[in-house]
C-alpha cells in the first residue's frame, strides 16, 4: 500500500477545507471498500479523510412524519438494530443485512456502498424502490438528487471533487404500500449479487388495483437500473401473477448485463424477470401483513 496522510475532521467545514487543499483525497467511512482498494493499488490518494468523527455523517433520525434521515457513514449494524426502523423500512433492512457478514456490517455504510458505485451494490435497488434521495454537500452549499441519478458507471458517481455525500433520505412511505429487496447468489450469504431486484408496490385504498410500482435492478447493467417500464406495464391492473409477469418482462427487456465469472447474459436477463416478480410478491405480502 502506498503511503498517505490520515485526516479526521470533526466538522463538515473542516472536511471541506481539507478537500480544497489541492491534494488527492479519498474518503474513509467504514473502509470495507476503500482500504482493500488502496491495498490492492486500485485506488490512490495523498490523504484519506475519515468521515466518522463528523456528527452529521453518523446521525440517524426518524422524523414525526415518518421520514428517515441517515448519515452517510452510519454503520449498517446500527441501522438494522433499530427496531422501529426495521419495522417501518423492511426493504432497507433486506439490503443492510446482506452486505458482507457481521464484521463488515459493523463498519460498512450506505454512503460507502453508494459512493463506491458498484453495479451490484446491494443498497442501491432497495433505496431506489423506496424513492430515496441523497443530500450532497460542499463548501458551495447543498443539493439533493434521487438516488437513481447518482450512478454514472462502474465505480463512478455524480459527486464533484469538492463534494461529499452527507445523507440518505428515505421519505415516509405511501399508504397501502409495501417494499422488498433480494438478490440471487449461489451461496446463502457473503457473496456479491449475480443479479438483484428491489420493488415497492402501492395499491388503491380498496387494495384491488395497482396505483404504482417502483422496480429497480442491480448487477444487470453498468449502473443500478430503475425500470420505469414496469410501472407503465402494471398501473391500474390487479396485483396478480399475470400482472407481475408483465413487470418482469419489462425488467428483462431493459437489462443490459454482461457475462462474467458470476453469471452470463442469458442467466442475468432471466434473473431480472424472476427476481422482479418475486420482489413484487414479497412487497405485496408485506403490504397485506400491515393492513
Amino acid at each position: 500500500m502506498e503511503a498517505f496522510d490520515y485526516l479526521a475532521p470533526h466538522s463538515l467545514l473542516e472536511a471541506y477545507a481539507a478537500l480544497g487543499n489541492g491534494r488527492r483525497s479519498l474518503m474513509l467511512a467504514g473502509g470495507t471498500d476503500v482500504i482493500v482498494q488502496l491495498r490492492e493499488d486500485r485506488r490512490h490518494c495523498d490523504q484519506l479523510i475519515d468521515l466518522k468523527h463528523i456528527p452529521e455523517m453518523m446521525s440517524m433520525k426518524l422524523t414525526p412524519e415518518g421520514r428517515l434521515e441517515i448519515g452517510a457513514a452510519k454503520p449498517l449494524a446500527e441501522i438494522y438494530e433499530d427496531g422501529e426502523i426495521a419495522r417501518r423500512f423492511p426493504a432497507l433492512i433486506d439490503s443492510a443485512t446482506i452486505i458482507g457478514g457481521t464484521a463488515i456490517q459493523s463498519r460498512a455504510s450506505f454512503g460507502g456502498n453508494l459512493c463506491n458505485a458498484s453495479p451490484a451494490a446491494d443498497s442501491a435497488p432497495a433505496l431506489m424502490a423506496l424513492a430515496a434521495r441523497l443530500v450532497i454537500g460542499s463548501s458551495r452549499g447543498t443539493r439533493e438528487m434521487p438516488v437513481e441519478e447518482f450512478f454514472l458507471g462502474p465505480g463512478r458517481n455524480a459527486l464533484q471533487p469538492d463534494e461529499l455525500l452527507l445523507q440518505v433520505i428515505v421519505p415516509a412511505q405511501p399508504a397501502h404500500s409495501g417494499a422488498f429487496y433480494h438478490r440471487f447468489i449461489p451461496r446463502n450469504e457473503m457473496d456479491i449479487a449475480v443479479a438483484s431486484a428491489g420493488a415497492r408496490i402501492t395499491l388503491d385504498a380498496a387494495g384491488e388495483r395497482i396505483e404504482s410500482v417502483r422496480v429497480a435492478l442491480g448487477a444487470v447493467a453498468a449502473t443500478p437500473l430503475m425500470v420505469a417500464g414496469a410501472n407503465t406495464a402494471v398501473v391500474g391492473k390487479p396485483p396478480t401473477a399475470e400482472t407481475f409477469a408483465l413487470a418482469g418482462q419489462a425488467a428483462a427487456e431493459l437489462a443490459t448485463p454482461i457475462t462474467d465469472m458470476r453469471g452470463s447474459i442469458a442467466q442475468r436477463k432471466h434473473l431480472a424477470s424472476v427476481l422482479t416478480v418475486r420482489a413484487l410478491e414479497g412487497a405485496l405480502l408485506r403490504l397485506r401483513e400491515n393492513h
Binding site: 475519515d50 466518522k52 464484521a103
Partner: peptide, 18 residues
C-alpha cells in the same frame, strides 16, 4: 476478527490510526 468498542470487525479492514 477483533472486537472494536464491543463490535466484531475485520482488523485487516480497519486502520491503526482509527
Amino acid at each position: 476478527s477483533v472486537l472494536l468498542n464491543g463490535r466484531v470487525v475485520n482488523s485487516c479492514c480497519v486502520l491503526g490510526v482509527e
